[in-house]
Amino acid sequence: MIELYILLIISIGAGIVAVEIKDLLASAISLGIVGFSVAIMFILTQAPDLAIVQIVVEVLTVVIFVGVILKTTHIDTTLEDKLNVRDYLTKGIFALFGIFFLLFSILALKELPQFGMPIMKIASHYLVKGFEEIRAANQVAAVILDFRGYDTLGEATVLFTSVIGVLTILRKIGKIK
């Protein structure tokens, strides 16, 4: 599983670059790197469907980012300003939060089953029923389309909502005066 760790480190590194770099285009590309390494990690964890969707979504996300950046500006001017007390305070709070969150999540994660050994209480039933009753080859498809079909409807609705939302927000005139 050494590939997984390498990819994690890559994505963390690319994430830091995406956050810190001054050129917003480079930032969006770095975000793309994170997304693609996530997609490869999905493949490594035996989730090919996820990887496909992730790649599609990632391409879309980067395209949207680049589109917005090209329409506006690609320099992050806010990084040029000197840091003041407020910024240091915010960073201090983040450090405090990070330490506590990491600490508590380590404590909490200890109680979870080990990585690579899920409980699969419901899933074992799914695997049996999905094959015998639905006759589906792809079990993920069986879950999203049959067992949990309502979630998929919800997912489509969310997409629909955001399309209408984007259309709403991009209109030039909202209020009639």
């Binding site: 996820l50 969707v53 979504v57 699969m120 799914y126 069986a142 879950v143 949990r148 997409l159």
Partner: peptide, 18 residues
């Protein structure tokens, strides 16, 4: 592997895109 989280993440990815 467990298929349920994959199905859920599929939904979550799309919600994230939106």
């Amino acid at each position: 592997v467990d298929p349920i989280p994959q199905a859920l993440v599929l939904t979550a990815i799309v919600i994230g895109l939106g």
